[in-house]
Design a protein around this nucleic acid. Structure first.
Lengths: 215, 215
DNA sequence: GTCTATATTCTGATAGAC
DNA sequence: GTCTATCAGAATATAGAC
C-alpha cells in the first residue's frame, strides 16, 4: 500500500484530528455550541474563549470580530437546513410520498442531534434575503410539480403550496422549537422527547397523507 | 345621568386616555414593542427611552431595572397565550371539534395582532417552571378527557396527547414563528401572510379531523 | 501563535439640581 | 416627576512582548 505521507506524519495528522483540535477548531466548536444554544447577544466573547479553553485575544486573532465568528456559525447552521431539502425535493425518481417521508425522517434525525438549531435559525433570520431561500426552493421544486399534477388528476385535494410546506415543516420542526416548554422538571425528559420524535417520524407522513385528502 | 367625577375631570381622564398616555404607559408600550420584536439582550434601555420619547433616567425611576421592566412584558405576553387555552379547553359544554375550532381561531386572531409574540415567548422560555404550564394544562384538561373517551368509542384513532397538542399548536403557531422566512423582498407580503392565516383558520380544524382518523 | 495589559466603547444605573 | 451629568462595570477589540 502506497501512502501520500510517511508514517510518522500520517500518525500525527490522524491523532491531531482525533485528540487535538487546533485552536481555530476549538474556537469554532465552542462558538457553535454557545451561539446555537443562547443566541448572539446572550453570549460574550469571553464565554466562547473560556469554553474553548483559549486566550480571549485569540478569538480576534483568528476571526477579527465576534460578528465574523457568528456569521460562520450562522451560515453553517443554515446550510444544514437547506442541504436536506435541496437533496430531496428535486429528485425525479421518487414519489410525492417518498419525498415527504424522506423530508420528515431526515429533518428529525438531523435535529435530534442539533435540537437548538431551529430556534436559533428562526430567531436570527432578519432581513437577510440569502436566508429566505427556503420558500423559493420549495415553490420552484420538482416536488411541487408532482403535487400540482396529482391535484389535477384528483389524487389529492387542491392545496396552497405554502400551506403544504408549512404543514410539513410545522409538524416536523415545531416540536424542537417548543422543546423547552415540554422538557422541564414537571414535563417530559430528554429521552422521552427523543422517543416522541422517533414516533412522529412514522406518523407525520401518514397524517400529511390524510390531510391531503381534505377538501 | 349621575357621574362619579365632575365633568371637567371626566373630560381630562378621557382625553388623557385617548391622546396622552402617561410616561409610565409610554415606557411600557415601547418596551413591549421592542422586547417582543428583538428580545431582551438585543434591546438596550436607551432604545426603549428613545422609542418612548422619554428621558433615560425615567426608566429606572419607574421600573428600577431593565430586568424588572422585561418581566412585566414577559408575563403580559405569556398570559395572553395561557388565557386563550385556559378559557377553551375546560368548557364542558363544547365538543372536541368546537374546542379545536375555537383554539385555532382564537390563536390566529390574537397572533395576527401580535405576530412576533410566539418567537419571543419561545426564545425566552428557559428553566422557569412557571412558564412551562402549557403542557400540564393541556394534559389535565376536560378536552383531553373527551378525546380519550372518543378514542375508546372508536370515534377517533388512538393518539398520544402530546402529539395532539403539538399538531394543533404546530399547525397554528408555527407559521408565525417562521414568518420572517416567508415575508421578505422575494417572498410574500404582510397582507398576503394575513390572508394565508385567515384561510388556515378554516382549514386547520379540517386537517386535524382528518389526522385523527389515521391509525 | 499565544499571552498580558490596556484602550475604547457600550450600557445599566444613580446622584443631585430643578 | 423630569432632566443633566456621570459613575462603575461589562464587553469588544487591539498593542506589543514573548
Amino acid at each position: 500500500m502506497i501512502h501520500l505521507y510517511p508514517t510518522s506524519i500520517r500518525i500525527m495528522l490522524k491523532s491531531r484530528k482525533q485528540t487535538d483540535p487546533t485552536t481555530e477548531e476549538k474556537i469554532i466548536e465552542s462558538a457553535r455550541k454557545l451561539f446555537t444554544e443562547k443566541g448572539y447577544n446572550a453570549i460574550k466573547t469571553r464565554d466562547i474563549a473560556k469554553e474553548a479553553g483559549v486566550n480571549l485575544a485569540l478569538l480576534n486573532y483568528y476571526f477579527r470580530s465576534k460578528e465574523n465568528l457568528f456569521e460562520i456559525i450562522m451560515k453553517e447552521n443554515f446550510k444544514k437546513f437547506i442541504k436536506i431539502i435541496s437533496e430531496i425535493i428535486n429528485d425525479e425518481h421518487t414519489s410525492i410520498w417518498q419525498k415527504i417521508e424522506m423530508l420528515v425522517a431526515n429533518y428529525i434525525e438531523m435535529l435530534s442531534l442539533n435540537p437548538d438549531m431551529p430556534l436559533f435559525v428562526l430567531s436570527h433570520t432578519n432581513q437577510d434575503p440569502q436566508r429566505a431561500k427556503f420558500r423559493e426552493k420549495f415553490i420552484e421544486s420538482y416536488f411541487l410539480k408532482q403535487v400540482q399534477k396529482a391535484i389535477k388528476s384528483g389524487e389529492i385535494a387542491p392545496i396552497n403550496p405554502v400551506d403544504l410546506m408549512l404543514n410539513i415543516v410545522g409538524l416536523t420542526i415545531f416540536p424542537f422549537v417548543g422543546r423547552q416548554m415540554l422538557i422541564n422538571n414537571k414535563g417530559i425528559t430528554k429521552d422521552q422527547f427523543n422517543e416522541l420524535m422517533k414516533e412522529r417520524k412514522k406518523m407525520i407522513p401518514k397524517w400529511i397523507k390524510a390531510m391531503l385528502k381534505v377538501k
